[in-house]
């Protein structure tokens, strides 16, 4: 129960960061908070449910890999935007058109 409360609160903190921050890097950090706490919650719940440790580990590893890929692409977009147009905030991206 402690892990559930802790992970849920950290997930809420990550959501709060995503909703309130304006810098794209900070928003990505908030997404990392949400993904990390969700991954811990997945491992905790599966452990309590008596799932096989190898299955839990492989699913959590998949989440970890997807989160790492998301962070890499997101940060590449931030760097590319900053180098092209000196923009790093979400409001400034409203002017960007494809």
């Amino acid at each position: 129960m402690t892990a559930l409360v802790l992970c849920s609160l950290v997930f809420g903190v990550g959501l709060y960061v995503v909703l309130t921050r304006r810098e794209i890097i900070a928003i990505l950090a908030g997404v990392e908070l949400m993904l990390g706490s969700a991954n811990i919650l997945l491992v905790a719940l599966a452990s309590f449910a008596g799932a096989d440790g190898g299955v839990i580990g492989s699913v959590a590893l998949a989440v970890l890999v997807v989160a790492a890929a998301e962070a890499a692409v997101g940060l590449a977009l931030v760097v590319s935007l900053a180098r092209r147009s000196k923009r790093s905030r979400v409001e400034e991206l409203l002017e960007v058109k494809g």
Binding site: L4, V5, S8, F11, G12, L15, Y16, L41, S47, F48
Partner: peptide, 27 residues
């Protein structure tokens, strides 16, 4: 309020799935 509400919903929906203190499975 939105963040706290989402946290509360997660806790309420999953509270029956968690029991005990330390899980037994390890790998």
């Amino acid at each position: 309020v939105i963040a706290l509400g989402v946290s509360g919903m997660v806790i309420l929906s999953l509270q029956d799935s968690v029991g005990g203190w330390l899980p037994a499975s390890a790998s």
